[in-house]
């Protein structure tokens, strides 16, 4: 076996990797969209009038947050068929990522809502605004900027956790690299390429999130330009 970096091999596998990258981006995007919505449900379920229900919900969130995503993936992928629900690897992966990061997202939302000063609520009550109107026009516009940095961080986080999907056979970037590597018995180029692709995508994304965070802080007057 030839040692060292082989450029011809790199060029040979590059198209395959590029297509797989699109799959990775798609997986991250869909997983993120699901997580955003699931997070909303978890948030609402924590704020019901029933104390027991709220408590149970918080425990579920705590459970999902403190167990590994990898085993959750296996659980969903292998256990659901036992109950007669056979889903493709893609669907299983998206559900699991959505659930896992949905719990994180609900914490982001909660923090943002609690970040809005209580006096805002009191003022709205004094002005006789309805709850829905208060949320829509007063609270949410103030809570959203607080949530942006957290939401952005988890977008990058989900993107970096998509390689886990390869373990249940989702054909994303890392899966493609493993397949190519196994076929040619050369792992140096595929895995290094995966690393480079991840870097080139996630560093600009992280920088963008940081800029967003700064812009939000400036807009809120927390830091000066």
């Amino acid at each position: 076996m030839e040692m060292g970096w082989r450029w011809d091999f790199t060029y040979e596998i590059l198209p395959q990797m590029a297509i797989a990258t699109l799959n990775t981006i798609l997986a991250a995007g869909v997983g993120y969209a699901i997580a955003l919505i699931v997070g909303l449900f978890f948030l609402l379920a924590q704020r019901t009038p029933s104390k027991i229900f709220n408590w149970a919900n918080r425990e579920i969130v705590e459970f999902i947050r403190s167990t590994p995503l990898l085993i959750q993936l296996f659980f969903v992928y292998f256990v659901l068929p036992q109950f007669g629900i056979t889903l493709s690897a893609w669907v299983c992966g998206m559900i699991t990522i959505g659930l896992h990061f949905g719990t994180y997202m609900s914490e982001v939302y909660r923090g943002a809502l609690e970040g809005v000063s209580k006096t805002q609520w009191e003022a709205c009550r004094a002005l006789n605004f309805s709850t829905i109107y208060t949320y829509r026009r007063i609270v949410l516009p103030q809570a959203f900027p607080i949530a942006i940095p957290g939401m952005g961080n988890y977008l990058v986080g989900i993107f970096k956790d998509t390689p886990l999907l390869s373990t249940i056979g989702v054909a994303e970037l890392f899966h493609a690299a493993t397949a190519v590597g196994g076929y040619n018995y050369r792992y140096l180029e595929p895995y290094t390429l995966v690393g480079i692709i991840f870097l080139t995508l996630s560093i600009p994304a992280a920088m963008w999130v940081r800029k967003l965070e700064r812009d939000v802080n400036i807009a809120q007057g927390k830091i000066k330009k």
Binding site: M3, G4, D161
Partner: peptide
């Protein structure tokens, strides 16, 4: 810091195990 935060842990793990022998 940017390198290790920018890439996925799984990729780093496989790199350490399968590529370092190269």
């Amino acid at each position: 810091i940017e390198f290790f935060r920018g890439t996925s842990l799984l990729v780093q793990l496989f790199w350490a195990y399968y590529v370092l022998p190269f």
